[in-house]
Design a binder for these strands. Structure first.
Lengths: 101, 101
DNA sequence: TCCGTACATCGCGATATACAGATATAGATC
DNA sequence: GATCTATATCTGTATATCGCGATGTACGGA
């Protein structure tokens, strides 16, 4: 992971809503039990919108930020977009941060 | 550590200059070998100014941000202000982040 | 082909942050 | 007390970020 990538990750994580989303995605079955599609696809954007209480556009931007940072991945199925944590990247980030700090 | 404190810490760390300062303070004898005062006091603000290449006022603000977040401590001796890492807080931050993410 | 749904993107106002220069404050020295 | 040094604080400006509503786009179904 480059220094620029680390920077983008920590900036993405510096907003509490984005950290919360990442945390929800850790246990989708707990936080998105009502999703009609299988949670194995990930969690679809609309569900996350609802849970935050923020507008659709705002949440979409937050998800884009997390994805640009590489912290989540998305999978498009039909008209839906499902998001999942990128566990590998998150782990690498934590390792890097442990080293640098 | 409260959620608000964690938030303030990660925001403080989201600026590369502040992370760099924190990193320099990890090995003062390596990065501030030319300091006339004993490094056991910490590293004095002026030395950090020089090393960043930014203006005195800007660096002072960065140091204040790090201190507000609890990541560094300061010790005033005469007309100098010496800064040191708060290792305990940094460690606690890393632990918390490992848990939350 | 026309709608409805899901989502991304755009445009904008409000707020926060970064930076520099100027000024204020505190301590040291003469 | 005048002055020098170190640092904090203030002021202005430029840029970034957040949030929203509006619009665009892609897909599915009638």
């Amino acid at each position: 992971m480059s220094s620029a990538e680390l920077d983008e990750m920590i900036k993405a994580l510096s907003h509490p809503v984005r950290r919360e989303i990442l945390n929800w995605l850790k246990q989708p079955e707990l936080h998105f039990a009502d999703q009609e599609h299988p949670l194995s696809f990930g969690v679809c954007a609309g569900k996350i919108d609802q849970k935050t209480g923020l507008s659709q556009s705002t949440v979409s931007a937050h998800l884009a930020t997390l994805q640009r940072a590489g912290l989540i991945t998305s999978r498009k199925v039909g008209q839906w977009n499902f998001f999942s944590r990128n566990e590998e990247a998150i782990q690498e980030f934590l390792t890097r941060l442990n080293d640098q700090l």
